[in-house]
Simulated scan of single mutants.
Amino acid sequence: MTKVLIATDKPFAPVAVNGIREIVEAQGYELVLLEKYASQDELIAAVADVDAMIIRSDKATKEVIEAAKKLKVIVRAGAGYDNIDLAACTAHNVVAMNTPGQNSNAVAELAFGMMVYMARNFFNGKSGSELKGKKIGIHAYGNVGQNVGRIARGFGMEVYAFDPFMTDEQIKNAGATPVHSAEEMYKMCQYVSLHIPATEQTKKSINYDLLKNMPKGAVLVNTARKEVIDEEGLAKLMEERADFHYITDIAPDCDCFSKFEGRFFATPKKMGAQTEEANVNAGLAAAHQIVNFIEKGDEKFRVNK
C-alpha cells in the first residue's frame, strides 16, 4: 500500500489534515502523521518506509532523503522550497514539488498588516502617515507579488515591479508599472516589498549600496527570506538614517535591530502562511499533487531537475 507521510513541526490545522486524509485514503493510500517532532532524528526514522511526503517549513535534508528508501515524491506545502535538498532528491530519483499560489494572499495581507502597523506608529496614539499616494516597489512579481500589487492598488498606492523573469507586457497586464533594474526601483519607491527566493545569486543581495538611495521615510518589507538581507549593511544604514524602517516576517539573526525602536518590527515567528485558508489550500493542493503524480505521472509543479 502506498504510504503518505505528513511531517510537520508546525502542524496543519485539523481541517486541513482531515481534507488531506480524505484525498489520500480515497485512493487507497495510507496516511501517517508526524507532528511537533522534537528532533531531526524523529523525521529520519519516520521516512523509512513512505512513498510520499508532505512538509511545511520542515528541513528535508540530504540525510532525510537518503533515509527515505521508498520515497518517490515530496511536496512542500507552500511556495518556497529552499528547505528541501533538491540535489539529494534528484540523486535519489525523488520528485520535489511546491504548491505555488496557495498561500499568496495570506502573505500579501500580512505584508500590508505590517505596513499599516508601521505607518501608524504601532498604534501608540501618535500621529502617523497614510499609504495612499505612496510609491511601492515589488521585488519579484510572482503570485505573492501580484497579490501585494492588487492590495496596494486598493490602498491607492502607485505600484511598480521589478522582475527579470517577466516581460514588460506581463507586468503591465498584472497591474504594475515595470521597472528595469532593482537600483532604479529602490531609488524611486518609499516602500519596497521583497518576494525573491534565497538563492546563491540573491543571498545578501539586499545590501547597503542598494538600500541607501531609497527616498526619505523608506520602508523595507520582507516576507521572503532572511538570507536575502545583508543584515550588517542594513544595520549600518539604519544607524546612519533615522528615517529608515524595516519590517519583516523573518526575525534577523542579528539582535542589533532591537535598538531601532519605532523603526523595526519582526513577527515572533514566520507567519506569512499562518491563516486557516492558506493552511487548508496548501495542504489540499499538496495531497492532490501527490495523487496526480503517483496515478498519472503529473510533474507540473516539479522544482528539481
Rank of each mutant, 00 (worst) to 15 (best):
D51W: 15
V221L: 15
V280D: 05
R150K: 14
E109L: 14
K269S: 15
M53G: 13
A278C: 15
L86P: 05
P252V: 09
N105D: 08
G113E: 09
M271H: 05
A198R: 03
A286V: 03
A111Q: 01
H288W: 13
E42A: 08
K72L: 12
T2Y: 09
L71C: 07
A287W: 08
E183K: 15
M97G: 07
N222H: 00
A273I: 00
S258N: 15
F162A: 09
N121L: 03
A91R: 11
K134Y: 02
R241Q: 09
A224C: 02
V73Q: 09
D41P: 12
T202V: 06
E277P: 00
E35S: 13
Y117Q: 04
K204R: 11
I74V: 15
K204Q: 11
K135A: 05
K3A: 01
K172W: 14
V144A: 12
M53W: 07
V47H: 04
N279D: 10
L210Y: 06
R150F: 07
M188G: 07
Y81S: 05
D255T: 14
I20R: 10
Q289D: 10
C254R: 14
G133V: 04
T275I: 14
Y81N: 04
G283K: 10
K126H: 11
N279K: 08
L237E: 06
K203H: 02
S127H: 06
N279H: 11
N222K: 01
G283S: 07
I55S: 10
F293L: 10
D230A: 12
L43A: 02
T61K: 11
V303D: 00
L43D: 04
H180Q: 15
E231N: 10
V219D: 02
D85N: 13
E42N: 08
K216I: 11
K62W: 06
S57N: 06
A287V: 11
R225G: 05
D243I: 11
R302Y: 06
A79Y: 05
G78E: 07
D85P: 13
E232N: 12
I65V: 15
I65A: 01
V219Y: 03
V303Q: 00
I54D: 03
I65K: 00
G149L: 06
H245K: 08
K134N: 03
E240C: 11
I20L: 03
A287F: 13
N98T: 08
A87V: 14
Y186Q: 04
A106N: 00
E240N: 10
